[in-house]
Amino acid sequence: MVSWGLLLAGLLLPIQQQGVMAEQSWVTVDRAALPYAPQTQALSLFTQDSSVQPLAVEATDSGWRILFRERIRGPVTLYLDESVPPAAEPPIAATALSSGPSVCYRVRHSSDTLWRAGQSLTTPGGDPYLMVLALFASNKERLGNDPDGLRIGDELLCPSAEVLGHFTAMDAQARRSLYRRLEAYGRRLHR
């Protein structure tokens, strides 16, 4: 494991790289070093050559996991912009990662849609298409493979890190395109 540092209020605090998937890296930050869930737009990772913005921040039992799109090699510094307020609450999908699949959305109204569910679970500044696609992929059987198959009382399971990683690896345009295809598929099912 590679140790790095977190620049927080002028202090350098230890963080660790947890693992690398394809061209992505997860960086972990201990809750003692950062006691609240940071928003993605508040973080920047500086390497010798460039600055990298994170794709997602997830809660773990001991702190936070931060996903970066590229493979990261030290030495690096993670900078937190303290002028950006903390996230209202830890991302729900990540909370379930340590304890297995858990419910992260309950359908309460007939007007609830997969889009609304995904949007409500998206962290501020995050891409709602990522969560909508991950929710559908994680709940296809529950929805009868129908993106419009939500019914009052349905419970959607939180996406796993693997499912989130799959959609995070796509660029934003590819996720939007895939979502449009999913919508079109739903319309064809209901003709």
Rank of each mutant, 00 (worst) to 15 (best):
W4R: 04
G5D: 07
L7V: 10
Q17K: 07
G19Y: 11
V20K: 04
V29D: 01
D30T: 01
Y36F: 09
T40S: 13
L43C: 10
F46E: 11
F46I: 10
S51R: 15
S51W: 10
L55P: 06
A59N: 09
A59D: 11
G63K: 00
W64P: 02
F68Q: 02
E70H: 02
E70W: 01
V76H: 07
E82F: 09
E82M: 09
P85T: 05
P86C: 05
P86E: 06
A88W: 05
I92T: 12
A93K: 10
A94H: 00
A96C: 15
S98Y: 14
G100K: 04
P101D: 01
S102M: 12
V103R: 12
C104H: 03
R106S: 09
V107D: 11
R108D: 12
D112W: 11
L114R: 13
R116K: 14
Q119V: 09
S120V: 07
P124T: 04
P124M: 05
A134W: 00
F136C: 07
A137H: 06
A137P: 02
K140M: 07
N145H: 12
D148N: 15
G149T: 14
L150W: 12
L150A: 13
I152G: 03
L156R: 08
L156W: 02
P159M: 04
L164T: 05
Q173G: 15
Q173N: 14
S177E: 15
L182R: 12
L189T: 10
L189W: 15
